[in-house]
Design a protein around this nucleic acid. Structure first.
Length: 456
DNA sequence: ACCAGAACTAGGGTGTCACA
DNA sequence: TGTGACACCCTAGTTCTGGT
């Protein structure tokens, strides 16, 4: 932010009875009639509505047009940082200007005849917008306590009753998804799977509505997240220049092309402060790859492991982002396994499990993978484990994970290294790598997968 | 290098939920 | 009523696989 270290505040303005403020064109009033039964004489009575009613098709468009127009006055004329969502209008400023920004918002509404609730006006470093608290002192998005309590209550009710019907499952999933948007990272993503499966299950006979093992554990895990999951951070969006950039690549022999040799990864690091790039290449030991789901070509896990090794090898740097060359379309990730399931980790279910401990969180993180045409959320087993390992490695180095796809031809150096082509490149000292989580997770996740596979 | 069948995808349609 | 996110179903078309 260009405001430097100045404290931020927000203002919020809520319009009163939003749709009712939009008038019906007088000559159209004959089309705007509602009918109610009079309980006294049991006869229908008709009323002409002079304001837009809820559910009227044009009300949504008409109202949002007005809302957006008002916001345009704020942003264009007064250069304010403000937003609108239906009748919620809100903006952020430094301490110096919040008061005047709020005054502008109120005055413009008053001048143009848009009435608002004086009682609902906010001017605070903890503004509440759309039911979410923006904590501008600690830069956190906080889930409201009431919402927390409602979610816990719903989950407990399901656990007590021991059954969950598709309708309730869908309702719970929707509310959890909204709540999760205020929580740290993509925590909890894997636990939606069993809930989602119940939502769309069609067989309602016999004991099919009963909670199975996977559902019970998912609910318990979600309860834990709602109660003690850390809030989402509000990050400063001003982009900084990267200190270093790392390119990686992976290789695995393709029998169709009669290729041979071990699975291999390579990486090149460009350091803004250094003259020459640094590089390494390493074979993936069979003890690691034999644990993957058998496939003819294991290129995806190999490509994903490359960044982990790169970070371990080039440790001691402050990494801002990491380019991962996979050259691999999203859908191939799905080939790793037909059923998309990932394990909850056993200690998660115990009450004394500390969610604040990054070691625990890293085992739960779901990672969003960016690819050229669109994006894919993968919670598929076991590719997610590789991403967890990567997240864990980054977390241990106080880094944030952001995977980006780049064109293959921009990755020539890593490509060469991976293919054992060392021309013009001096040797690199190697360091032994210890896997942080992948071994442990494979055991847990494989077990979890078996449990889920067995459960109906 | 080629072929046939299997396996898989994109994208439209439908439907659920949440929020306003 | 609108929006977005997600899941499932379906069809036409593409890509992979295993064999020659």
């Amino acid at each position: 932010t260009r405001a430097g270290d100045r404290r931020l505040q927000g203002w919020v303005l809520d319009e009163r009875k939003a749709y009712r403020q939009l008038p019906i064109l007088p000559q159209h009033r004959k089309f705007s009639v509602i009918c109610l039964k009079d309980l006294e004489d049991d006869r229908p009575k008709y009323f002409v509505m002079i304001g837009h009613s809820f559910v009227l098709v044009s009300a949504v468009y008409n109202y949002n047009r007005r809302s957006a127009a008002l916001n345009d006055v704020f942003t264009r004329l007064f250069k304010m940082v403000s937003f609108n969502f239906y009748d919620d209008k809100y903006g952020f400023e430094t301490e110096l200007t919040t008061r005047s920004a709020k005054l502008v918002a109120e005055t413009i509404h008053w001048l143009l005849g848009a009435s608002f609730d004086q009682k609902k006006l906010q001017l605070s470093s903890l503004p509440v917008v759309l039911g979410v608290t923006f904590n501008l002192e600690d830069f956190l998005l906080e889930i409201k306590e009431e919402r927390k309590a409602e979610l816990v209550e719903s989950i407990d009710a399901i656990l007590t009753s021991g059954s969950l019907d598709p309708g309730t499952a869908g309702k719970l999933k929707g509310r959890l998804m909204f709540g999760a948007s205020q929580l740290w990272g993509k925590v909890g993503l894997p636990f939606f799977r069993p809930i989602s499966e119940r939502q769309y299950s069609k067989d309602l006979s016999g004991d099919r509505m009963d909670l199975n093992e996977a559902l019970k554990r998912s609910l318990i895990c979600w309860r834990g997240l709602v109660v003690c999951g850390p809030p989402r951070e509000i990050s400063l969006r001003a982009s900084k220049r990267s200190d270093i950039v790392i390119f990686t690549d992976g290789f695995t022999p393709d029998q169709r092309k009669a290729e041979c040799g071990p699975d291999r990864v390579g990486a090149v690091m460009f350091d803004r402060r250094g003259l020459a790039p640094k590089q390494f290449t390493e074979a993936i030991p069979h003890s690691i790859s034999e644990k993957w789901i058998p496939r003819k070509i294991q290129i995806v896990p190999i490509e994903m492991i490359a960044p982990i090794l790169a970070l371990e090898t080039f440790r001691g740097f402050c990494v801002e982002w990491l380019g991962m060359e996979t050259g691999y379309p999203t859908w191939k990730l799905g080939l790793l396994l037909k059923r998309a399931l990932v394990g909850g980790v056993a200690p998660f279910a115990s009450p004394d499990w500390d969610l604040g401990d990054p070691n625990n969180l890293a085992t739960l993180v779901g990672v969003r993978l960016w690819v050229p045409d669109g994006e894919a959320m993968t919670t598929k087993f076991p590719s997610t484990l590789t991403l967890m390992e990567l997240a864990e490695e980054l977390s241990a180095k106080k880094c944030e994970l952001q995977l980006q796809w780049i064109r293959r031809d921009l990755n020539q150096l890593a490509d060469d290294l991976t293919n054992d082509s060392f021309a013009d490149r001096p040797g690199q000292d190697r360091e032994a790598l210890e896997w942080r989580v992948i071994g442990r997770l494979l055991t847990h996740a494989t077990h979890r997968y078996e449990v889920l596979e067995e459960s109906p």
